[in-house]
């Protein structure tokens, strides 16, 4: 009801422009001013307590200090207050970090059978090992363990060169592996082709039966490692030639029998040398344990 207000004159600052332009005087409440002074005082106190001003390559540290202790109660940081120290503390002593410790203890004290049978421990071990796998294994084996032919084996399938039991996997991670198949440059020509076709026939590829039969004789040289029946030998890391998984020769990707044969003859001719480094000295026991479970579950251990 603005009409009512005209009866009273409104207070102005007394300034007049252009003859009739006036400025209302609406004074701020004084507590407002005091609040502003309060913020100035606050910042002064803050400057004294906390890191604040940059000076060249350095900065004012403030007088507030912080002390961070590790699991054993040893002081790992003792200095001026900063958020990195807070993070350090949180990584060790926050409720989440303590819960993680609890989970680690649980895994430490459990056998593989117990871990594998417990959805709770499995969830924990797998989520933690995912990070470890990314840090230590994924550079070669890929983030999902898919590997790279012919260099790094696929961990996500159910074929295991060195055995798919948890003990085998743990040993591989701890001590590393050396895989070695010598080349056979002396086998050449028809004999080489026949041998390659025989190897293909082992895993059920449809090849010329007569040629395969001829190649069977040449296979005698391979039996020492791959076995008389071609089933391989996990002690030596010699692959099973009778299954559908190929770890060196890219048989599934070759497209034709001729291509597959070429892949196989290459391997027989040149041999293969692969090495996985040992991680036993780099990883803690419980980390290896969790990685073992993780790798075991990637494609299905045996």
């Amino acid at each position: 009801m603005s009409t009512n207000n005209t009866s009273k004159e409104v207070e102005t600052t007394g300034h007049v422009w252009d003859g009739d332009l006036r400025e209302y005087s609406n004074p701020l409440p004084s507590w407002w001013l005091w609040t502003f002074y309060g913020t100035i005082v606050f910042s002064l106190i803050y400057w004294v307590l906390y890191p604040t001003w940059p000076i060249g390559n350095d900065f004012t540290k403030g007088i507030k200090t912080i002390e961070v202790k590790d699991e054993q109660g040893k002081v790992i940081y003792d200095g001026h207050w900063n958020t990195r120290a807070l993070l350090l503390d949180e990584m060790r002593n926050s409720p989440a970090a303590l819960r993680q410790k609890e989970g680690i203890e649980m895994v430490k004290n459990a056998s593989y059978e117990q871990i594998l049978a417990s959805p709770e421990m499995m969830s924990f071990a797998r989520s933690m090992a995912k990070g470890l796998f990314g840090d230590y294994c994924a550079a070669c084996h890929g983030t999902g363990g898919q590997g790279v032919l012919p260099y790094f084996p696929n961990l996500a399938d159910d074929d295991w060169l060195w055995g798919g039991k948890v003990e085998n996997i743990q040993k591989a991670i701890t001590s590393g592996l050396k895989g070695n198949m010598p080349g056979f440059p002396t086998i050449q020509g028809q004999a080489l082709d026949d041998l390659a076709l025989y190897v293909l026939s082992l895993s059920g590829e449809k090849v010329d039966a007569a040629a395969a039969e001829r190649g069977k004789k040449g296979y005698a040289m391979c039996m020492g490692c791959h076995g008389a029946d071609g089933k391989g030998n996990a002690m030596l890391g010699a692959p099973n030639l009778t299954d559908k998984v190929w770890t060196v020769a890219n048989v599934p990707g070759a497209g034709s029998i001729e291509g597959m044969k070429q892949e196989i003859t290459n391997v027989i001719h040149k041999g293969i040398k692969r090495e996985m480094p040992a991680f036993g000295h780099r990883l803690k026991d419980y980390e290896i344990k969790m990685l073992t479970v993780y790798v075991h579950e990637m494609g299905g251990g045996k």
Binding site: D158, D243, K244, G300
Partner: peptide, 13 residues
Amino acid sequence: QPLFVSLADGRVQ
């Protein structure tokens, strides 16, 4: 990663 793998018995997982 990987989306699928071939298994030893030829099945896809």
